[in-house]
């Protein structure tokens, strides 16, 4: 450590919880909102979720159909690139493994895309194997539009901008392409434990 901030003490946490907080993050108790534009209004009657791209038979669900898929309840720590970490967040939704069940694809990447035009790119292996969900309940309540309702992607092991709000589908891709924030200075992968916040990190 080369530089010391004169007179800075900081607020330290106990070791148990700090082992769950990635470098440069701090713990919050509320749930901050970050979005680049207005919150899209999506009627349940018009909501659909699709899987498209490198797939022979694209898949599509209406809200009613989607709600009939097997659900999982998970409790995860989430890490936003703007530095806040929220511990033990409780979600209910559909595993991406369930969504991709039976899909044969040569794709190695996915682009999640959303109502309102948001996109974010991920390696396929980061949304399969029990690592990602399409969540529609938070803390036992329907997911509020500010936080991405009707449904958002949940990929808790990556910075939270990868957990696309208002998600409406996954596009399977052979080649990695930058999504919205990834085109605007943010990291292509976004591992909070390696502090991959920005381009070049």
């Amino acid at each position: 450590m080369s530089f010391i901030s004169r007179g800075f003490r900081g607020k330290r946490r106990d070791a148990a919880s700090s082992s769950r907080v990635p470098p440069g993050q701090y713990v919050v108790n509320d749930f901050p909102v970050l979005s680049a534009g207005p919150t899209p209004r999506v009627a349940f009657s018009e909501w659909t979720f699709v899987v498209e791209g490198e797939i022979d038979q694209p898949k599509k669900w209406t809200w009613e159909e989607f709600r009939k898929l097997p659900t999982e309840e998970v409790t995860k720590d989430i890490h936003c690139v703007t530095k806040w970490t929220k511990l033990d967040t409780a979600w209910k939704g559909v595993s991406v493994d369930t969504i991709l069940e039976g899909v044969e694809t040569s794709a190695e990447y996915v682009m999640a895309f959303s109502y309102g035009g948001y996109t974010t790119n991920l390696p396929l292996e980061d949304v399969t194997g029990g690592k990602a969900w399409v969540a529609y309940e938070f803390d036992g309540q329907p997911l509020h539009p500010e936080h991405g309702g009707p449904a958002r992607l949940l990929v808790p092991h990556l910075y939270f901008w990868k957990s696309a709000k208002w998600v409406r589908g996954l596009r399977l891709l052979n080649k990695d392409e930058p999504g919205f924030w990834e085109s605007n200075g943010y990291n292509m992968y976004g591992d909070p434990w390696r502090e991959q916040r920005y381009w070049g990190d």
Partner: peptide, 28 residues
């Protein structure tokens, strides 16, 4: 920000022309 952006959409402005940045009471 939620309120203002919502009003602007209601007033007919293109959502894509409205750029937002939000901060909550947390942080520091």
């Amino acid at each position: 920000v939620e309120g203002v952006a919502g009003h602007l959409v209601d007033m007919g402005f293109d959502p894509a022309s409205i750029k937002t940045e939000r901060f909550g009471p947390t942080g520091g």
